[in-house]
Computed example of a mutant assay.
Amino acid sequence: MEIVQHKFFHQKTLDLAKSLIGKLLVKETDEGTCAGWIVETEAYIGPGDRAAHSFGNRRTARTEVMFGPPGYVYTYVMHTHCLVNVVSGREGDPEAVLIRAVEPCEGVDLMFERRGKGKKRKELTSGPGKLTKAMGIVKEDYGRSLSEPPLYIAEGREPGEVVSGPRIGIGNSGEARDYPWRFFEKNNEFVSR
């Protein structure tokens, strides 16, 4: 598996959100390695993005990593689910890309163990909280470099048609809820909606 070079993350946030589609998200744990092709992302461009945690340059212990260089992990917990983001933008510009869904390709049995044997395969990683649970990505991965194990992004496969639309679950964010900053592989069954 060829891990992407750190320079890959040095692109504009919207470009990065789109170019992550088809890349491989990998997590190594003591139980084993899980990997999936990224099929859905969402870009968050604070300080002017009402849906971003860093809106208005809000700098807290939680958002601190977003003020650093791109290519690092931003994890946070929402409604008991850990969510994983790629820090993007230039240092000092707190931006990030949420990884919303992946298509499993390695460690599928382990994913079933973590998510529940009764799940359908397409339910394993078809949402941001589902994929972190299935892959063993935890809040403590916060701040890791995405260019080295145990949590990293590798070269993947050429995706199908990539389309964009409004982001999901941000209804209280004014005009930002309509920005077409969600990117996904068209017709992939693992896309969250």
Rank of each mutant, 00 (worst) to 15 (best):
G68P: 05
G71T: 09
L24P: 04
E140G: 14
D15L: 09
G107K: 10
R58H: 01
V73W: 03
Q5E: 13
E40D: 10
V87R: 00
V162P: 04
K133I: 14
L25I: 10
I153S: 08
M1Q: 07
R62S: 01
V102A: 02
K120F: 10
S147R: 05
K27T: 08
G165T: 13
N172W: 07
E185T: 11
L110F: 06
K119H: 12
T80M: 13
E158D: 13
I170T: 03
L131E: 07
A43C: 00
G36F: 03
R90M: 00
G143Q: 05
G160K: 09
E91P: 10
R177K: 15
Q5T: 12
V65G: 00
E103P: 11
I3W: 07
A52F: 00
K12F: 10
A43P: 02
S192Y: 01
P166K: 13
G32W: 05
E91A: 13
E91F: 11
G116P: 12
S147G: 11
N57E: 00
G48K: 14
G171E: 15
G174T: 02
G32N: 05
R144A: 10
G92V: 06
G174S: 00
V87N: 08
G118N: 14
F184A: 04
A154R: 04
E2M: 15
Y76C: 14
C34R: 13
F184V: 03
V39F: 10
P104I: 13
I170F: 07
E95F: 07
G36H: 06
G22Q: 04
L20I: 06
G171D: 15
S145V: 06
T13G: 08
L83T: 08
A17V: 01
A101L: 04
G169R: 06
I170D: 01
A51G: 04
R157Q: 14
P69K: 15
T125R: 08
E148F: 03
R182P: 09
G143S: 06
T80I: 09
G46V: 08
E140N: 13
R50S: 01
C105R: 15
G160D: 03
K18E: 07
H81Q: 05
E113L: 15
V191A: 09
E155P: 00
T75F: 08
L20V: 09
S88V: 03
N85K: 11
R114M: 12
K7Q: 06
W37E: 04
E123P: 07
R182C: 02
L83P: 11
E42P: 01
S88A: 14
V97K: 07
Y152S: 07
L98P: 03
S54M: 06
G71Y: 01
K12D: 15
L14F: 08
Y76G: 02
I3V: 15
E103D: 12
R58P: 00
E123S: 08
S173C: 14
F184Y: 14
E189P: 15
G71D: 02
H53W: 01
Y74S: 02
E189Y: 04
K186R: 15
Y72V: 00
A43K: 08
M1R: 11
K23I: 01
G136N: 02
S192M: 02
